[in-house]
Every structure is written in structure tokens, then in C-alpha cells.
Design a protein around this nucleic acid. Structure first.
Lengths: 339, 339
DNA sequence: CTGAAAGCGCTTACAG
DNA sequence: CTGAAAGCGCTTACAG
């Protein structure tokens, strides 16, 4: 069977290609009777319009792009990204948009090159941006390229002027964690964040410090890499440095570093939570399975992906810039803080 | 700046569109001088040919599709899929092919509908098939649709007659595991597999049984779902059933079930490995972090994805059907078997 | 409501 | 080696 085309359908039905197209796309310009006949025939023949022909004539790719730019090792072990992907995918599928996925290392130039290419080839209609960086060059680049985008976890201050984005209330997340530690008796804590180059880490750091200050708690900050080893090394360093009062709880920026912290405590012969309590800024199966299980901030990553994708669809369909705040996270209290 | 086109470049250079096209695509039909001028101008203008126009005139989408069809919860926690994706992506990027990703639940009809659509819209040039099922309807469907595909982990018996595929030597994997258990003194073991509907599970089951038989070992088989709870429940059930000699080691089909098994042992007050040893058929960070750490078969999932993608590219470029066997896995011995 | 025609931006025989 | 032209399969003003 030769591939059917719109011309073929038109001939079979004795009408013009235009009518078939109108019928297919729900456009006015055909009678209901004709429309039904077209739709029925398409269904009967299992026929779908060619995506590339459509893309060419509509000047719309029908796809959005996402670059996963992180240490491949991290991506593989971080459940965070899979959740994000699942959410994105579900929203895109509903909007009949395809997801174009690329994974590259931490090299920003590679990521930029992909955007240039996508824009030049008109391969995607828009882009999803995650992990907002301090002085992030990507928004300006995408604007120059004319590629619409949604910035996930944009700073609260970013009003929907030049781009769409989701915002996360890091202050509230920070407060949740610090409040819990204060309530369980901790007065001197450490905060092992992810890289300061991420905007969300800056905000978390400020949030934790301000909340702790409010309670008169001491907080030592340490910059980690999100890798398990970073959590391990941070603990070793922080607990070696004699501080008064001694650190009795450590907040770590993700689940991997929290696992590293647990390992380090074990090596040092320290008990958790009796000697040192642990809180993870990301929940995952690792936190649940660890012994002791780890108290963690549960952010709904699937929902986050979904909302970001929805904002992008909205932007592409109607040009509407919008900011949506993510629902606040929940602290799941487990054994690592005596839960 | 209006979008450049091939016609624009041709005009600027005072040559025909055809020449520009030939130059761009490395085709004969242009002098080296002209080719250079074209390439230089394209570079200077940051210009790339429109992917949809290309796709339409070449009748080639420039993308391959992959449907992740599994319990979303499983996908999120299984590092397996991320590794696969990373490998696939790296091979495709080198071949200048895009990856079209869809995630659906376990409903096979949904997956089939996606293939029909992709084929009808000519949205992808080929498809990557994972998790080969017993009586898998997908190969026949894809053949009917005219969509080339690669079957990952096809049975050894499948010669490259009708499709390309990778093969895994499950016998050797099984032997590796059983040998280790036998060497560490176990004579009565249980094997908690994944669903029997997967071809690879059938082969593992046979492999384990045959090898155990060779040693005169007893082996009880149990069908799990790959979910953590399945591993948990299996342990409870298997150890309750009094068998002689009592089961002293359990092999579980993936890392999640192995974690469940560990939890169940703890609940039952049994020590691992002293009372019951554990082996996981998939290695992951979970196996490393668990206490005790879990002996696991380390399959290189990144490589597996890469090879599958390479086979598909080969098939699409040259029509060559080929079978490639995956390198055999390595058993990483850890504390759960007394390592 | 319908049809003939141009256009989307490439590739590719076909003549020169 | 180069150019003019047809074709890929849709969509969309534009006339009727």
C-alpha cells in the first residue's frame, strides 16, 4: 500500500485538498457532513497527516526541547530528573507536542550550541529551562534566538515581563526545615548546599540563615556539588572543626549528599540522630531506605515538570507570559531527626 | 533579521540553490571553492537548514522514537532507564538523530497507538524496543507499519533475519550468580524473578534452574513485579514456607525488590548474610548504600542503550540487519553475600 | 461551503 | 561544475 496523502483522500471523497485539511483541523469552511466523511475515512485508513509537511507549512515544529545538562553520573542516580520528565511528558502529550531530549555534560557551551542549532533548524518551538543559574546566560541567548522558553524555579522577584516561569518559595521551604530542627532542640546546625551558581541555592542559603538568625541559632554554610562524596566530605570537615556550640544537625542540598553524610557519620562512629541529625532537601527512595531513614523535604517533581510544560504550551499557543508558583513542599519527618 | 533560507544564501553568493544544497550536504556537484564559500557563509550567518523542509523533501524525519512503558513509579526509581537513555542519546547525537521520548503506563494499547501515530505522521524513522515480551505483539505491529526497529535483549535464538537486536547471555549471567552462591556454601536458594511475561525473565529462570541443578542445589522460584513490595512479600512468603534444607540465599530480579527483601529480613529479625544472603540482578546506588551492601550483577546500562541506538542508526542508514551480543555482566560481590 | 493555486524550504533528477 | 524546475505533503488566503 502506497502512503496515503491528503490529495489521495480528497480524490477518494471527490472534494478538494483544502476541504480535507479544514475538516481535519476543525477549521470552518466545510459542512458537518463533509467533515464527518473526511474524519471517518481517515480513521478507516489509519491515516495521519505528515508531521514534516505540517511543520513546514505551519512553520511550527510541533515539539519542544529540553537539554539535561548535568554530570551524567548525577543524572542517572538523581530520581529528580525522571520525575521532571514524567511530568513534562504528560503535559506535552495532552497538548499534542513532542519532547525532544538531549543530554550533555556540564559544559555550558555545548548546551548553548544545541539551542542555536534547534533555533536555526526550527526543530523545536520552545525550550524548557531548568536549574536557573546565577547570571544565567541562557535567557538572553534564547531571546536572541527567538526561541520561547519557560524558566523553571525562577526567582520570586521575576515578574512575567520577558518570560514565563515557575517560582518556588524557598523561604517557606527553608523555614519548614529550620523550624523543625529548632523544635527538636537543635541550636547549632550546618547547611551543605549545592553549588552557589544555582539561583535556588542562593535563595535557600539566605532562607536558612535568616530563619536560623530569627531563632538565634548558629548556622555554618558549606558549598557542595550534589555528589555523594561532597556530602561525605562536608561532614568530615564540619565536625572536625571545633565549633561552640557543636553542630548537632546538618541540612544537605539533595538526597545523594545526605547519603554521603550518613556514610561519613558511620565512619566517624557518630550516631544519627543522637549525635548528629540529618535533613535532606530532596526526598527519594534513598531517604526512605537509608538507616536511619532520612527526614526530607518532599517536592513534587512530577508536578513541577508538568506545570513548566503547561506554561510553555500556553506561551506557544497564545503568546501569554505567565508566572506560576509551585505548591509549597512538605517535610517528611523520619528517623534521622528522631521522627 | 528575517529568517535566512537556502534561496537567500544562493542569492548572496550568486549561485543556485542546488549548489548550496550540494555544498551543505557534502554531495558532489560543486567545486571545492564554492563549497567553502557556502560553508563559510552559513557559519557566519549562524544558519542551519530547516529540519522540517529537509524532512519533507528527504522523506526522513531525522528522529527515532522510544516509548517508556512501565509503571511511572518504577520508571522514576529505577536507575536502569536513565542509564539506557543516556547511552541512546549519546549514540543518536553522534548520528545527528533526535530522540523522541514518550512515557506511558503499562497499557500496551497506548503504546501501540503511539507507534501507529508515529508511523502515520512519519514522525520518526525508527523505533527502539525494550523489555521484550513473551509473544510480543510489537515486532509484528511495527513491521506492518513499516517502521524499522531494534529489539533490545532479543533471545539468543533470534538470528538477524527480520530485525536487528541486541542479545544478552542470560545463561552466563545466571551461572555467575549461582556459581558465587554455590562457592559461598549455599545449597538451597530462592529466585524472585520479575514478571514471567518478559522474555529475559524466562531465560534467567531457566538459566538459574539449570545451573543450580548442575550443582544439585535446590531452587524455589517466585514471580515478582519488580516493585519493592514484591521483594518484601516474597521473602516473607518464602521463609515462612518450611523447606528442607531451608533457603539460605535469595536472588532478586532487580535492585528495588532486593531492597524490599532487605527490609523484610530486618522485620523478621533475620541477619543478612548470616541467615539469608541476597543477590540483586541489577546494580545501582541502592545496592551500594544498603546495609548490608548488596551483591549485584552489574550490567552496563549506558552501553546497552548505546549499542541499541547504534544498531538502529545502522539499520536506517544502510538497511543492514544485525545482531550484537552485549558484553557479559560482572558480579560485584558485597556484604550481603559475605563479600 | 468549495476549489484552484501559491507557498512553506528544502532535495534531487535532469539538461546544459 | 552549475542552473532551472519539479516535488515532498501539507496549509491558507483568495475567488467563486
Amino acid at each position: 500500500m502506497a502512503k496515503e496523502t491528503i490529495a489521495g483522500l480528497a480524490k477518494r471523497l471527490g472534494i478538494s485538498k483544502a476541504s480535507v485539511s479544514y475538516a481535519l483541523n476543525g477549521q470552518p469552511g466545510v459542512s458537518e457532513v463533509t467533515r464527518r466523511r473526511v474524519l471517518d475515512l481517515a480513521e478507516e485508513l489509519d491515516w495521519y497527516p505528515s508531521s514534516s509537511a505540517r511543520a513546514l507549512s505551519r512553520s511550527r515544529a510541533g515539539a519542544v526541547g529540553m537539554v539535561l545538562s548535568a554530570d551524567p553520573l548525577l543524572i542517572g542516580t538523581e530520581p529528580y530528573y525522571m520525575g521532571l520528565l514524567a511530568g513534562i511528558e504528560s503535559a506535552l502529550a495532552e497538548g499534542d507536542m513532542a519532547l525532544m531530549l538531549r543530554m550533555v555534560g556540564k559544559d555550558p557551551l555545548q548546551e548553548h550550541a544545541i539551542y542555536e542549532r534547534w533555533s536555526g533548524e526550527r526543530k523545536v518551538d520552545g525550550v524548557l529551562l531548568f536549574d536557573h543559574l546565577h547570571d544565567d546566560p541562557r535567557p538572553a541567548l534564547l531571546e536572541r534566538l527567538g526561541l520561547p522558553f519557560v524558566l523553571h524555579s525562577a526567582p520570586e522577584s521575576a515578574r512575567p515581563t520577558s518570560f514565563s516561569g515557575t517560582t518556588t518559595d524557598h523561604d517557606s521551604d527553608s523555614a519548614r526545615i529550620v523550624d523543625h530542627l529548632h523544635a527538636t532542640g537543635h541550636r547549632s546546625i550546618a547547611h551543605v548546599s549545592g553549588p552557589h551558581s544555582f539561583v535556588h541555592e542562593e535563595e535557600r542559603i539566605r532562607g536558612v540563615r535568616e530563619r536560623a538568625d530569627g531563632y538565634g541559632m548558629t548556622v555554618v554554610q558549606y558549598e557542595g556539588s550534589y555528589a555523594l562524596e561532597a556530602g561525605h566530605d562536608a561532614i568530615a570537615l564540619l565536625l572536625r572543626a571545633a565549633s561552640a556550640p557543636p553542630i548537632s544537625a546538618v541540612v544537605l542540598g539533595n538526597d545523594l549528599m545526605s547519603m554521603g553524610a550518613l556514610l561519613a557519620l558511620r565512619e566517624l562512629g557518630l550516631r544519627c540522630p543522637e549525635d548528629v541529625a540529618i535533613v535532606s532537601w530532596d526526598d527519594s527512595l534513598h531517604c526512605q531506605l537509608a538507616s536511619p531513614s532520612v527526614t526530607a523535604l518532599s517536592r513534587n517533581t512530577v508536578l513541577q515538570g508538568r506545570v513548566a510544560a503547561e506554561l510553555l504550551l500556553l506561551l506557544l499557543d497564545s503568546g501569554t507570559l505567565q508566572t506560576r508558583s509551585m505548591p509549597s513542599s512538605e517535610l517528611v519527618v523520619r528517623a534521622s531527626t528522631g521522627g
